[in-house]
Structures are given as C-alpha cells and as structure tokens.
Amino acid sequence: MQSVVKSPGSQISVGLSPLRKFWQRFIGFLFPPETDTWLAVLRSGLGLQVIVYALFLRSDWHYLFASSGKGLVGREVGEAITAFDSPLIPTFGWLVAVGRNLNMSEETVLTVAWVGLLSAGCLLLLGLLSRPAAIVAWFVHLCAAESGGLLAYGADSFMTTALFYLMLSPLPDRYSFDHWVAKTKPKNPQLLGFWRRVLQVHLCFVYFIGGLAKCLGNGWWDGSNLWRSLIRPPFNLVPPDLLVQFKYALPLLGISICLLEVSYPIFIWLKRTRRIWLGCILAMHAAIGLMMGLYLFALVMIVMNLAAFGVPSAGRRAQATSATTEQ
C-alpha cells in the first residue's frame, strides 16, 4: 500500500479547483465565439437612431440648449446639477467654452454640434469611419443629455448606454463601408462575444428592474396604469372612446407587461422561449412607439434587443473560424 503524502500546496489546489472551474465557465460565458452580425445591427440601428434624434430636435435644438435668456430654461441649471455629480461629465458648456476661444458664438457651436451629431449618425448607418463616428455620436449626445438633463427622459439614458457600448465594441464589422472600401479590420475580433454579452446582461437588468418596479405598483394589476398612460397628453394618440371598448383587456395587458419584463432574464436565455420573449418585447416596444408617440424610445429598445438577442449566435461556425484564425 502506497502512502500518499499531500503537500499543503496540493490541498490548496484541490480546494481551488471548483473555483477554477467556475472561473473557466465564467470566462467561457463572457467570451463566447461570435460573428460581427450583431454589431452591424447595433451600428446601423444606432446610426438611424441618432439621425432620427437629430432630425426630431432640429427645430428646437437651440431653444433647448441655449444659455439663460435665450432658450427655454437655459442649460446652466442642468449643467450645474450635472457638475454636482462630477465636473468630468461632458456638457455643451465645455464646447461653448472651447468655441469662445476660437471666436465662435454659442449659436455657432450648437449648430456645429448638431451637424456633427447628424453626420455621425449618417456615418454610423453607412459604416464609414465607424469608430470615430461612434465616439462623436456618444460624446455629443451625452453633452445634450447632460446639458438638458432636466428635459431628458428614458430614451436618452438608453441611447447613451447603447452608444457607449458601440464605441467600445470591436468596430468595424464586415458589413460596413470601412470593411468594403478601406479594408479596415477590427483590432480585437475575439471581443465580439464579450461586448454582446455586456449588452445582453444590461438588457436583462433593465427589464428585470423595470418589471419589478411595475409589479410593485398597484396600477399595473388592474389596468389603470395603461389607461392613465394612454390618455395622458402628449401620449394620447389613441382616442379614449376607443380605449374604453377594450377596458376588460387592459388589466390582462398590464399584467402581461409586468410578467414579460420581470421574467425576461430567464426566458430570453432559453433557446425554446427566446423567440417568443423577443417577439413579445419587440411587439411591446412597437406598440409603445405607435400608440404613444414614443418613437425614439421604441426604436432604441428595438435596436438593442435585436442586436443582443435577435441575431442568432454564431455558435460552431464562429468557433471554427476562430480556431482557424488562431492556427
């Protein structure tokens, strides 16, 4: 019989093996093999989003972001509140200060910012100069969202988030002009899976917390919240007389929305239920956009969902591609 003498080091390594297995599984989850199709969806979708955002705000851009005495409330109050959070958060005040040194008026700076944002949107849609365009779009949109923080709503925070992830993702994708014309290739294609995971997990947080908060409100269980939201100006696109005819369906719809959102982090990962959940979520956002006029909010959520879960995962094909590349 052989006596086995274990050294303290080996005992530690035995103790660590489950931890190491967990770590390997975690790394496997974070860095799955992935193609860049989802990134093309996110890039072109956000390009369209930025264009629509800029065009929708075209007539009010100066009025919303001008300083006190010229605009609606003046951007100084919003910027002061932002500065309390952190003086490092970019605002239009930064750009105006830079413009002043170049003898540019505030109005000119705001016009340049708007043109920059619209151009960045067009470039993103085409996939030309993808990364610089993503950075410009994120920066200018963040300035707008922070300077007009008091006027911001849900769509702004989702746009900032989506543009932030896009900016960090391994651009350009193979469907972009950068790839066709300039033959530019991404520096870290192995990170495609990682950034898709980040987007997926982020959406799970959004829907779970949103669903949980809705479940805690009594108005979602009896349909009164749906009624209130649909008759409330400026979301009242559907006549109340028409809504009343569906009054028995509203509680059912309200409960469905709560359950759909709170269970999203579970059923969106299961292959069998993914398509159903994704279809329902997309239908919900399309309905929000069409029935309440929240077009920007609907579009950004649809784009994020499609990029995160709408494009089939590359699976074996990408694994084979990455293996070939590594060789």
Binding site: R58, Y63, L150, G293
Partner: peptide, 13 residues
C-alpha cells in the same frame, strides 16, 4: 416648443 419630441421633454420637466 415647436416639435413633438421637444414637447415630450417639456412634459418631463
């Protein structure tokens, strides 16, 4: 405000 999107922001304020 002029646009509908901006009107939504005014409501938010």
């Amino acid at each position: 405000v002029r646009g509908k999107t901006a009107a939504l922001r005014l409501e938010s304020l």
